[in-house]
Amino acid sequence: MSAIRRLPLVLGTAIAGFAVLVAILGPMLVPHDPFTQNLAHRFVPPEWLPGGSPAHPFGTDQLGRDYLARLVLGVRISLMIGLTAVVLSGLIGTTLGVIGGYFGGWVDAVVMFIVSCRLAIPIILVALTVVFLVGSSLTVVMLTIGLLLWERFAVVSRSATRQVASRDYVAAAWCAGCSRRSIVLGEILPNIVHHLIVVATVDMAIAILLAAALSFLGLGVPPPMPDLGLMIAEAKDYMFFKPWVIEIPGLALFVLVLGINLLGDGLRDLLGGESGG
C-alpha cells in the first residue's frame, strides 16, 4: 500500500533528478560538440540499430551532429526554460494571490480581474507577437512563458491564503504587534508553500511543453540551439524515413514531463498534511 503510494514520488524524484544531473554534467561527459556538423556522417543510426556505431550512441541528425550531445544540451535548455519560467511566474502569481487572499475586499476583486485578463490571453499568440517584434532568443522564450504562466500560482496561493488567514495564529500574530508584511512572510507563506511546490512542478512541466511547442512552431529557441521541441521540429521532415530522430527527443520530452508531474503528485501527498515538524 505505502510502497505503491510512494511510487510517484520515488519515480518522479529519480527521473527529475536524473534530468537535472544530465543537464548539469551531461555536456561535460559527452565527447562530441553539439554544434559540429559532419555532412559525411548524416543520419548515423543509434548504436542499437543496424549500422549504428559506438562513437554516436544516439546516432547523428540530418547535419551529422551527435544526437546524444544535442539531446543532453536540449534537456539542459528545456530545464532552464522551465525553472526560470516557474521562478518568474511563481514570484508574480504568489505575490498577487497572497495579496488578494490576505487583504480581500476590493484588492481581491482587482487581483481576480487581473487573473481573468491573463486567462483571456492566448500564450501562443502573444509569443508570436513578441517574437515578431523583438526576435526569438532563449531569454525571450523564458520571459514570455514566465510572464504569462502565473495564473495557477495566483489562484492556488489566493485560496490557500484565504484559508490560512482565517486561522487564529494569524490573528494572534496581529495581536502580537506583527506588521502585515511579517504576518504574510512569517505566518502565511510557510503554511501555503507546500501547495506552491506542487503548482511549481505542474507549471514547470507546462512551461517545458509550451517552450517545446513554441520551438516547434519556430517561435522559440533559435537554431542551432537544441531545445527538445526544436529537435522534434527539425526531425519531423525525416520521421517516415528515420523515425529515431523524432522518437528520441519525443521520448525524452515525454519522460521528462512525466517525471516532473510524478514528482508533483508525490510531493502533494507528502506535504499535504499540516503536521509540520
Binding site: D168, Y169, A173
Partner: peptide, 10 residues
Amino acid sequence: DPASSLNPRR
C-alpha cells in the same frame, strides 16, 4: 482552539 492558534510551522 490551541490547534489553530499556534503556527504549525514554528
